[in-house]
């Protein structure tokens, strides 16, 4: 029952997707930013963020999702995550060795701004995993489209 030959699924799926996709993205960001206090971290949060874009693509078709996050921008984000993680590791040489937790004041434990470099590493890994898995999914889907 497609209305005007538009891509994607039916109206019910689209309405529910409009409601839930923002919440999924927000939950992923929460998981990443509280990775040093509670279960979660960069890996799980990155996959959740990638899943929110995958959800958008499955419901609305590839054009809407690629307008939000294009393929080249995803590649840029992934490279940025890799460079950010490596540069955080290299900054440890300021204090002596690779991967040094170089903040002298690490902040109060059990609070959001604590634990030195660990939140920044979480953000870098989240960018890398999320953009990389989204790029994998988009490339597999585009291959499928060209088969038709």
């Amino acid at each position: 029952m497609k209305a005007k030959n538009e891509p994607g699924m039916t109206l019910i799926v689209k309405t529910i997707t409009r409601l839930t996709v923002g919440l999924i993205l927000l939950y992923g960001i929460y998981i990443v930013s509280h990775g040093h206090l509670s279960p979660g971290g960069g890996f799980a949060g990155g996959v959740i963020i990638a899943l929110s874009f995958v959800h958008l693509m499955l419901a609305f078709g590839k054009d809407v999702a690629l307008k939000k996050l294009s393929m080249s921008f995803a590649g840029l984000l992934e490279s940025m995550g890799a460079v950010m993680f490596l540069s955080i590791a290299l900054l440890g040489f300021m204090g002596g060795y690779f991967f040094l937790n170089f903040f002298s004041k690490k902040g109060l434990p059990f609070h959001l701004f604590s634990a030195g470099i660990i939140p920044f590493c979480n953000i870098a890994i989240c960018l890398k995993v999320g953009a990389g898995l989204f790029a994998i999914f988009v490339s597999l889907v585009l291959l499928y489209k060209t088969d038709e």
């Binding site: 990775g35 040093h36 206090l37 509670s38 279960p39 971290g41 590791a89 690779f98 991967f99 937790n101 690490k106 902040g107 434990p109 059990f110 604590s114 634990a115 030195g116 470099i117 660990i118 590493c121 979480n122």
Partner: peptide
Amino acid sequence: KTGAANIVAAIILDFRGY
């Protein structure tokens, strides 16, 4: 040493960063 409450995050990102 790290200030992180989650020990697993402390291991994968600080003690065993390699």
